[in-house]
Design a protein around this nucleic acid. Structure first.
Lengths: 206, 206, 206, 206
DNA sequence: AATGAATGAGTGTTCATTCAT
DNA sequence: AATGAATGAACACTCATTCAT
């Protein structure tokens, strides 16, 4: 096996781990199962990762990296977000990211639910997105010659609990919702957008 | 320890289990630790509960029961919810419930994050609350002689993803938020209310 | 509850224990199950018996007592055993005893199969029966003016391994045999008798 | 201990398990003890066997395999069994097999004594041997131009309850008998043969 | 005589991790 | 880079037995 395959192997382990973690939770996952599913010897996993924890850490690191990339692309692509329906593009980027990464996001949320936890990835991710979002807002206010609200705390809370929370819930329950209510992915996404527009976005626009 | 007090002992086990589950997750929890913390012999836990799973099930059952009671009390106490600031009272009831039960709610959310899961308690809880909420809305619309929106799916999605999601997030991250941003419980709650009012509630009122 | 019931209760425990032991073996049996099946509180079992072992000991003791009674009755009832077909009566008594007691006999044999065992009940039972049998034979020889074989060891071995063994096997496999080969109890018993007559009995008569 | 020798290790586990099972019974045996006695880590036992049950199943499987091999060798080596004292050779093969395998046979019998049991190994073993034996007889009858008995059921019962039973008893009580009556292995075996000849064999010969 | 509650020691099994090759 | 074998420390769950009433 050459280095090419080596990279591919490590990636396969990560990919399988992500799926299994999201299926049964981190604590519920077995290294044995990861090995089996990834068709590698169990010991090989320990050749690439120091421990089961390190697999999760790597996965979380990648998630944060990907979020950053996504946000950077957003910044570049959307000079005037929040002006009317042109927020839709940003929303699509977000919802696409959330949908694609929902498996590992679910794991992150589940882990963050444990009280005994270090600074959770979800908080980190939240901060990242919220700050980007607030920066967006600031630009827009400035562009419109408006006075930007002074209470940052208030703003953070609003962004986190009414702006981000729906997306987290989307990651968590998209699949269950589609199953339970027999809705197509497109319909759910569209209606979710309408709801988000009527609530959180409404508070921003104008 | 006072022996021979079946009910109290069982309650203590449940209470300790709830705390430990919320600290380290269900899979991360050890029956040994529950026994130790509850000052009972481990075997006694199996005298009261068939398995570790049954402890969780009982906890979830109680949560749903309590939610029902809370909702019934809400129904009785608030004939005209959603009419202006009198929603505050309902909000307070909700936020109080969420705050008080946040430990087990966190466990419920974490468990619901696993893909391999039967109908999750969170969905059950969500349905319960949303249906109550929608019934509330309906009454109000009727009282005002207004036409009640026809697309139930749309309404459910909005309630779940923009009405409930913030509360779930509140349960999940209240403590972490207070720690991280050094906000008092009261302040967080108040600002959360303001944000909720400006977003989700705004879409309902008027 | 008066003494009458007390005796009945103890008997019920023994009876249930016998059945459960024979179903799953002594080690495989649970005191809990005995209690449940006998409809008594588990602690009550320990009121009547010092331990699970004592239940088995009592059962074995009863078996030996019953065997003795059976043998005594045989002695009285059969002055000239082994003279031709009049052995049939003795055989019937034996086979009846074996059939009736087969459950506890099976337990006794299973226990005796353990190498780490004190003098086994089966050996005790065997000795009892063999000695009675040999005494029978001796009488018959004397009555016929014949010389009684001198090698007792030889005689014991023959009685135990070709006289008793078939009966032990009958206790062990009667039910399985009937099931497997779809034979009625009567047919099996009759053919067993014919086989026993052609082999072991033949060696004794004349 | 020499690591990295899969086959030898697995064999050692099996061998130790066989001994312990025969000492204290299957249910009485502790996996811990097997591990200790075999000088392997307990988890290693579960690396080779799915469960304690599977160890027993393997042992039983091996016993049946060995029995088949033994029978095949018998078939080849004895064209005219049962003709007079040349049965002795066959007897020796049997008694040698029974003696050598008596430990696992004892376990098999003890397990077969449980009512709640699937088709027992003893029955399987019994069928194997009896069928071989009957085939032997048939050949002999044919060779002598005799009419072979028609009632197969009768024949099976005779073989099982008077032909096989003594050997099972020999497996079960050989050691106890030698201890109790202070007989040497050789003497017991010889006298057992004489008894068997006078009873079961007598019915076959001529 | 009878019972619900309680317990210590264990019991088969699992798991993350490491070793030797 | 890869693997089969091996391990220590759990882990959920069980069981015979006892206590207090």
């Amino acid at each position: 096996m050459n280095r090419r395959n080596s990279i591919e192997t490590k990636a396969r382990i990560l990919s399988v781990a992500e799926e299994i973690f999201s299926n049964v939770g981190f604590d519920g996952a077995r290294v044995d199962d990861i090995a089996k599913e990834a068709s590698v010897n169990k010991a090989l996993i320990y050749y690439y990762f120091k421990s089961k924890d390190e697999i999760l850490d790597t996965l979380f690191l990648n998630l944060v990296e990907d979020a950053k990339k996504m946000l950077i692309k957003c910044m570049e692509g959307t000079p005037n977000v929040c002006t009317g329906d042109n927020y839709k593009k940003l929303f699509d980027t977000y919802i696409h990211f959330i949908t694609e990464k929902r498996n590992i996001i679910k794991v992150a949320i589940a882990e963050s639910a444990k009280t005994k936890t270090k600074i959770s990835v979800v908080m980190e991710l939240g901060n990242l997105i919220i700050n980007a979002e607030i920066e967006n807002l600031r630009k827009k206010y400035v562009a419109q010659g408006l006075h930007f609200p002074e209470d940052r705390q208030e703003m953070l809370i609003m962004e986190f609990f009414t702006g981000l929370a729906p997306f987290f819930n989307y990651a968590l329950y998209k699949d269950q919702w589609e199953d339970l209510y027999q809705v197509s992915e497109e319909e759910l996404q569209e209606k979710f957008y309408q709801a988000f527009k009527k609530t959180h976005l409404r508070a921003h626009l104008l």
